[in-house]
Design a protein around this nucleic acid. Structure first.
Length: 186
DNA sequence: GCTATGATCATA
DNA sequence: ATGATCATAGCA
């Protein structure tokens, strides 16, 4: 614990709509190091994955609008939550302009406050933050899940790799994480 | 209606 | 490597 000293909680500005209205990969990288807050629980995003639209076989949005994927085609900055394997929830943040598919899976966060469970995996972090389908399709700029910059001009070392746990389009380098961070998954 | 398939995780 | 467990999507 002593070796990972950080400024107490330099919570900066809330992320606004234009932050999310950018290419999905840009948003996926930009979300690293940002703070995510739900109720009294807060963490720092250390690992993300980009899921594109048509053409990305691994993305839920690959085959167009369905009841489930509707939010991914909606306004940027909204939360897309879904259940995987019948027992875990995954949290995404919608990117791109409204009408364009694209979202960013939050894969791991570093606990900052109010967190009592491991956060090094997409299913674990939703559990630790108390996120369920109730938060699906909520607006992160005004809703229960909020995102903030962390005001400590630290320059992040970002690494890239293929996405985890998928079978289609598994060669694309769309996973991003903070190099050396101990809270990255696996 | 029926079935296959997971953007996972814990256990062994 | 395997099992838990269920919403979604595609098809009949």
């Amino acid at each position: 614990m002593p070796q990972m000293k950080r400024t107490p909680l330099a919570c900066g500005a809330a992320l606004e709509r234009p932050f999310f209205a950018r290419p999905t990969v840009t948003v996926a990288r930009a979300l690293l190091g940002k703070l995510i807050v739900h109720g009294n629980r807060a963490g720092r995003i250390v690992e993300t994955e980009a899921y594109l639209g048509i053409g990305d076989g691994a993305a839920h949005s690959a085959r167009g609008v369905t009841p489930r994927t509707r939010v991914i085609f909606g306004p940027p900055g909204f939360a897309y939550v879904y259940m995987v394997y019948g027992m875990h929830y995954c949290l995404n943040v919608v990117a791109e302009q409204e009408g364009q598919a694209g979202c960013v899976l939050i894969r791991a966060v570093e606990p900052i406050s109010g967190i009592a469970l491991p956060c090094n995996g997409p299913g674990k972090l939703t559990r630790a933050l108390g996120i369920t389908m109730k938060q699906n399709a909520t607006d992160t700029t005004v809703g229960p899940i909020r995102l903030f910059t962390e005001d400590n001009g630290e320059v992040l070392r970002i690494r890239t790799s293929p996405r985890v746990g998928i079978t289609k389009s598994s060669d694309l380098p769309l996973r991003f994480f903070i190099e050396g961070n101990p809270f990255v998954s696996r």
